[in-house]
């Protein structure tokens, strides 16, 4: 389903309030869900008479330069071009810097139900306010069952079947000074085609459920710094039950590791973006939180070009080759 937004929804956003947007025409179309693109468009090329330059579902913005250009066309042609723009199936028009088009254009907006808005703000201010909101609104998102913790500013997504100990692991991480982002339901958004931002379901922010204890509000227990609204997801920790098969897999991974195939690490795709994944078997005597923290440290070091295993193994190889005592 293609997402859409109405101009009324847009006007209701707190981030729009300071722009002082006024509806000056086409009010009938305010509640139609017609904005379908996260990008806005400046209408210059369309006003210059070039056809096919109005992209579907994008809000159109007319700033000082557009109005200056219209002046050079003479009033008759300027009006004709504006009317053509209004009737081209666009979701709405915003005029900036206090400009407003001629009454005849506003009447056309009323007839066509195309909202015409105006603001005293600069075009750049308008775009700065509107673009992040649209990007967020239209970003693809999913919900995953898991726990998300901000560990050294790295979003660490802990996955595993119910009852395996994800929340307990998160609690231990909080004890170590890390922050809870989401327990049980993780809302993940992809933004700018590269990043994954994780946050809690709005009804669950800063709550954690521990079997045998109950629901706890981590802010009451640990203070406001124990939770965080959102974090960029950097790695996945998959918790699995310790079984013969899991042990087998662990051995295979270790062998591959020590053969120097370190770059062939496992990944899992979320919204089309691959995320590095560590698989950890949960067993008595294994402190999962400590292992998670160490995995994050290791990935931070790797990001800085520091490779624990690489330098260790190189040294062993040199000794084996008789180059070093």
């Amino acid at each position: 389903m293609k997402q859409s937004l109405s101009i009324a929804d847009l006007l209701g956003q707190p981030c729009m309030a300071h722009l002082g947007l006024n509806v000056i025409g086409g009010a009938a179309g305010l509640s139609r869900r017609i904005v379908t693109s996260p990008r806005i468009q400046k209408s210059g090329l369309a006003l210059a008479g070039l056809e096919g330059y109005v992209k579907e579902g994008r809000l159109q913005v007319l700033g000082a330069s557009e109005f200056d250009f219209l002046k050079t066309l003479g009033s008759e042609l300027a009006e004709k071009r504006l009317l053509a723009l209004v009737c081209s199936g666009i979701p709405g028009i915003i005029c900036t810097k206090g400009h407003r088009p001629h009454e005849s254009v506003l009447r056309c907006c009323d007839e066509a139900g195309v909202p015409m808005l105006c603001t005293d703000s600069l075009t750049s201010d308008l775009i700065e306010s509107i673009a992040p909101f649209l990007e967020d609104f239209f970003s693809p998102r999913i919900q995953m069952h898991g726990v998300l913790v901000d560990v050294f500013s790295k979003g660490t997504l802990i996955l595993g079947e119910p009852g395996i100990g994800k929340s307990e692991c998160a609690l231990e991480l909080i004890y170590r000074g890390h922050r809870l982002v989401a327990d049980d339901v993780v809302v993940i958004k992809r933004f700018h085609r590269t990043g994954l931002q994780g946050s809690a379901h709005e009804r669950l922010a800063h709550f954690l459920e521990l079997r045998g204890v109950g629901i706890i509000d981590v802010r009451n227990h640990f203070g406001m710094t124990a939770s965080s609204d959102s974090v960029n997801i950097s790695l996945i920790i998959q918790l699995i039950k310790l079984s013969r098969e899991a042990r087998e897999q662990e051995m295979i991974r270790r062998e591959r590791h020590l053969r120097g195939e370190r770059m062939t690490h496992e990944t899992q795709e979320i919204l089309g973006i691959p995320v590095r994944k560590y698989i950890m078997a949960v067993a008595p005597g294994r402190d999962v939180a400590l292992m998670v923290e160490t995995a994050v440290r290791k990935s931070i070091l790797m990001g800085r070009g520091i490779d624990d295993e690489g330098s260790f193994l190189q040294r062993i190889e040199r000794i084996a080759a008789g180059e070093e005592a």
């Binding site: 069952h145 327990d183 049980d184 009804r203 669950l204 709550f207």
Partner: peptide
């Protein structure tokens, strides 16, 4: 949401 986990159900 996962039916084996209470917080998700409550959302």
């Amino acid at each position: 949401v996962n039916a084996k986990s209470i917080l998700g159900l409550l959302t």
